[in-house]
Simulated assay, not measured.
Amino acid sequence: MNSALFPDLIVNGETVPHTLVASETQNHDAPAGKPGIAWRKAANAVAIRTLLLQEARARALVAERQEVAPGKFETDEEAQIRGLLESVVDPDVPDDDAIYAEWKKDPSRFHAPPLWEVSHILCACDPRDEEAKRDAMHRAESLIAVASKDAKAFSAVAMRESDCGSKSSGGALGQLGPGDTVPEFEAVLRSLDEGEITPEPILTRHGWHIVRMDAVALGGVLPFDAVKPKIADAMEKASWARQAQKFVQKLVASAEISGADLEAK
């Protein structure tokens, strides 16, 4: 291995196995043909993690592993780092005046979510099957011209041709909001005006869709009292992040590290 591109990472005299840095590289982007950049990013991340673990052990911290998702628990190291940060970070809790001042900067940032009333025609396929995907696309393309004639035509085509259970209601999906459908479908909804039909089929994990926007209700600006808890939570999280960053910077400043460039950051 090229020691110039992939130097040993040593943190306070502890040599970090190359395998840990190599594994971390998958989480970092780099231009094609420049693996050294991904390695340096990974080395920085692993160096910080190593510093935090060293500090947790120096303080003899014990932290129970917590469930982070159904049936999924932290690793011992993740629990130690969380326990350390919980012990040293005390985020500021914003008062009512600070929360109101943050809202007053630009109340238009806080909208109720939009509602979309949508109909669609699905030509189902497995997108991983290239032949099936191509056949379903051609089928969907042939249906668009007919379905675009008028509202009755769209419903009739949906009832006759759609592979979705909504065919019984002429393709109507009812009202949808953010998060109610797959991201690719939602992206289309955000781009359509009322009464508009997608000019070409849209691919999702379910197949090809012809989508019609039946009605749009854009969310209005929310009053302060409705968004106050959300703003307070965001401000407290931002305070936590700032204090955690300062704590890490203090560890870096007092550490001896080679194979990473944390001081430059």
Rank of each mutant, 00 (worst) to 15 (best):
F6S: 02
F6H: 09
F6G: 02
E14Y: 13
V16C: 11
P17E: 04
P17D: 04
A22Q: 10
E24Q: 08
Q26H: 13
N27K: 14
H28V: 11
D29A: 15
D29V: 15
A32W: 11
A38L: 08
A38M: 07
A38H: 02
W39K: 07
A43K: 04
A43I: 12
R49Y: 02
L51T: 02
L53M: 09
A56K: 00
R57E: 10
A58K: 02
E64H: 05
R65F: 11
R65M: 12
Q66A: 14
V68N: 03
A69C: 06
G71P: 02
G71D: 02
G71K: 00
F73H: 13
T75S: 11
D76H: 13
A79T: 06
Q80W: 00
L84G: 00
E86A: 12
S87I: 04
V88K: 00
V88H: 00
V89W: 02
P94D: 07
D95M: 10
D95F: 10
A98W: 05
E102V: 08
E102M: 08
W103L: 05
W103I: 03
D106T: 07
P107L: 04
R109P: 03
R109W: 08
F110P: 05
H111K: 15
P114V: 00
W116Q: 07
E117P: 07
V118H: 02
S119M: 06
S119G: 11
S119L: 05
P127Q: 04
D129G: 05
D135P: 13
A136C: 06
A140I: 08
S142G: 14
A147I: 05
K149L: 08
D150V: 02
K152H: 13
A153H: 11
F154R: 04
S162C: 06
D163V: 08
D163A: 09
C164Q: 10
G165T: 05
G170P: 05
L173T: 09
L173H: 12
Q175S: 15
L176N: 02
P178I: 01
D180W: 01
P183L: 11
E186N: 06
V188A: 06
L189A: 01
R190P: 03
L192A: 01
D193F: 10
E194A: 13
E194W: 13
L203M: 10
I210P: 00
V211E: 09
A215S: 07
V216Y: 04
L218S: 13
V221Y: 00
L222P: 05
L222S: 11
P223F: 07
A226L: 07
K228Y: 11
I231E: 05
A232I: 07
D233F: 13
E236Q: 14
E236K: 14
A238H: 11
S239G: 07
A241Q: 14
A244H: 03
F247S: 01
Q249M: 12
A253C: 08
A255I: 02
E256C: 11
E256T: 15
A260H: 03
L262P: 01
A264P: 03
